[in-house]
């Protein structure tokens, strides 16, 4: 009885060993950044972008020029409410990542246009914008549009500015 079971176990171990070797190969490719897989599309620069560093990209989307004045606290307050309701399942306003990156300092790393485009147009951003692609490769979760209006998007930006000033 015992030897019979052992005999049955050995193929199982062999298969898992083979799967292990195969998986090693697979994840090796992955480790070198999954941005590699996007290199088929034209002009991929994602592999060279570190999402933690500053970028001047304005991103892809309807916001091409955002004028900033002094921080409007009332507007930031509204933005905080929208953020809590629609973004906080995945993002924190500290530097800690949860599902997505922590957003402390985001206004220093990114342009206002990029931030507003990422909020309103995340799918296209993560396919076309170099920073967006690098973010998808790093966090492995596609961000989704949360049905925020343009006004609400601007309010969220104001909240980020206020959050970064503190």
């Amino acid at each position: 009885m015992k030897t019979k079971n052992l005999r049955q176990l050995i193929p199982a171990l062999l298969i898992s060993g083979a799967a292990f070797l195969y998986a090693c190969g697979g994840s090796g490719n992955d480790a070198s950044s999954s941005a590699d897989t996007t290199s088929n599309s034209a002009a991929s620069t994602a592999a060279s972008v570190d999402p933690a560093t500053k970028s001047d990209s304005k991103g892809v989307g309807k916001f091409t020029s955002v004028q900033l004045g002094p921080i409007d606290d009332a507007m930031a307050e509204k933005g905080k409410a929208v953020f809590t309701a629609k973004c906080s399942a995945c993002h924190k306003a500290t530097d800690q990542r949860v599902v997505g990156p922590g957003l402390k300092g985001v206004t220093q790393r990114r342009t206002p246009e990029w931030i507003m485009n990422q909020i309103t147009n995340p799918a296209e951003m993560e396919q076309k914008d170099p920073v967006g692609k690098a973010l998808l490769a790093k966090y492995l979760t596609q961000m989704t549009f949360q049905n925020v209006t343009d006004d609400e998007t601007r309010q969220i930006l104001e909240y980020f500015r206020q959050n970064d000033k503190q």
Binding site: Q8, A12, F20, A23, C24, S27
Partner: peptide, 19 residues
């Protein structure tokens, strides 16, 4: 995260479910 060792244990789990 999702790397060689965890993939190995996941594979072992799948084989256990077959058995």
């Amino acid at each position: 995260g999702y790397k060689a060792v965890s993939i190995t244990f996941s594979t072992l789990f799948i084989i256990v479910t077959y058995r």
